[in-house]
Nucleic acid binder design. Structure first.
Lengths: 158, 158
DNA sequence: TATTGTTATACTCTATAACTATA
DNA sequence: TATAGTTATAGAGTATAACAATA
């Protein structure tokens, strides 16, 4: 009896990427959990750090999260003291969401987990191999139309 | 104002793998959906094809799915006519799950979707680049202790 | 006493729709 | 009439615990 799949998918690019990628996401979430920061919250924090204040609707659009789900997410982050809601002067329906100093410190605490996962994944590769892998992945990501820094899981169900 | 993240995670190996991998899984699921085959069902079908008959408990162990969840999964596959439950002669508590001819045809129908996703992901790369990427991914997968052909999502929550 | 398959229940997360206040 | 934020409800999917039959 053979152990080779009829479809041979196990060694395909698509399956390997999906398999390794899923494990990468798990490792990251596991490292973040003790900090009380979900991957989704990290996504919002990072976006605010990179691109400055956003309204909830703008954040929802940028990250692909539905604005209904953004409410509880911002509630949670506000309760942690990481962001602040302020009424927009231009449009009094909207809130401007801004990072607090505590929010910036929360982002800083994620550097450790990021470095850990990076090492767990790339630790077996030589420096030039890591560079090659990164460049190839960036090309594939671009071909797929993926926005840098925006994770597909942020928007919910697969 | 800069557009570069403070953590620089967007261009890290870990994030790129997670991002591209998530999209790969989505593409695969999208292609499978019209066939009425979920990624999880495909995982079970493939395992049966590769390794022959298994009891539900053996399938659960091999794929990391809890045996409680295996029940409805096998129910569904049996209703489609893709597998058959037969009482084990050795152990009359257990069912041997076996592929039917219709089950093998279902697997055959997945070859198209697999090829499509493979092309969507690797289409921009040269032949030698695809080979390089595959080899690097296999090494990372091995380092992470991933079992060939077994997807982490099969076992449920992240 | 342990294990296989099964069922029931609770919990988490997400989708959908509707409401309010502003525009 | 449309939009930003909010809330409520329902649904899918999973974890947990218990049960019957068999080992």
């Amino acid at each position: 009896m053979t152990r080779e799949p009829g479809t041979g998918y196990a060694r395909s690019l698509a399956f390997l990427l999906s398999q390794v990628g899923a494990r990468s996401a798990e490792l990251f979430a596991d490292q973040l959990r003790p900090l009380g920061i979900s991957p989704r919250v990290f996504g919002v924090l990072s976006n605010l750090e990179i691109a400055g204040d956003h309204t909830q609707q703008q954040l929802a659009d940028a990250l692909g999260i539905h604005r209904n789900n953004m409410v509880a997410l911002i509630d949670e982050m506000e309760a942690e003291g990481w962001v602040r809601r302020r009424r927009s002067a231009n449009d009094r329906r909207a809130f401007n969401i801004g990072l607090t100093p505590a929010g910036r410190r929360a982002i800083d605490r994620v550097r450790g987990p990021i470095a850990y996962v990076e090492q767990a994944l790339g630790g077996v590769l030589e420096e030039n191999e890591r560079a090659t892998l990164t460049v190839l992945l960036e090309r594939v990501a671009a071909e797929l139309g993926l926005t840098p820094g925006v994770h597909p899981h942020l928007r919910g169900r697969r």
